[in-house]
């Protein structure tokens, strides 16, 4: 199928963007800077949503009741990533994880860490779905999702 006699052209697109966070994301990220994780509570369905939302995606009402949520939770699912692609914002190997923070009603997406990730067989001995985990904070916090370095097993 591959016909090496035909030419190709190498091209590239680079576009700068500046995306607006709005009030809710701004306050959520400010919270991370201060080592706090904020959710918002829907007054209609009663769910505590994290990260904080400006509205409940199910009830479509404003969610302006702010709740500082627990930094401890349960590991729901994890994925050991061992490949790389262009523009990947996190350096592999890493463990993308769904975490149910105590008292909240949705799964929070972040990383598991705090142990050697280079040998998968060792990783598999440590990490188990259902285990209790806790947020570990970066010393250099910028008001960014990576202000939480990762969650560590408790």
């Amino acid at each position: 199928m591959e016909a090496k006699e035909y030419k190709t052209i190498k091209t590239e697109i680079r576009l700068p963007y500046e995306l607006a966070y709005g009030a809710t994301w701004t306050r959520f990220f400010e919270g991370l800077k201060n080592k706090t994780i904020f959710g918002t509570k829907c007054t209609k369905c009663g769910r505590i949503l994290v990260p904080a939302r400006s509205f409940c995606p199910r009830c479509f009402v404003d969610t302006d009741e702010w709740v500082e949520v627990s930094q401890v939770g349960t590991l729901i699912a994890w994925c050991y990533t061992n490949y790389k692609y262009f523009g990947m914002p996190t350096e592999p190997p890493f463990i993308g994880s769904l975490i149910r923070l105590n008292g909240t009603d949705v799964n929070f997406l972040h990383l598991m860490g705090g142990f050697d990730l280079n040998n998968f067989d060792e990783v598999k001995k440590i990490i188990k779905s259902g285990m209790k985990v806790e947020a570990v904070w970066s010393d250099d916090r910028k008001g960014h999702i990576m202000d939480i370095k990762y969650f560590r097993p408790l």
């Binding site: 050991y80 692609y85 890493f94």
Partner: peptide
Amino acid sequence: EPFYQRYFISGAPGVFSMQSQMWMD
């Protein structure tokens, strides 16, 4: 989006791996 989920998704396989684990459990 580039300020929350993009850091953790690791392309299509990452999402489906987590889903498979939840199903197994």
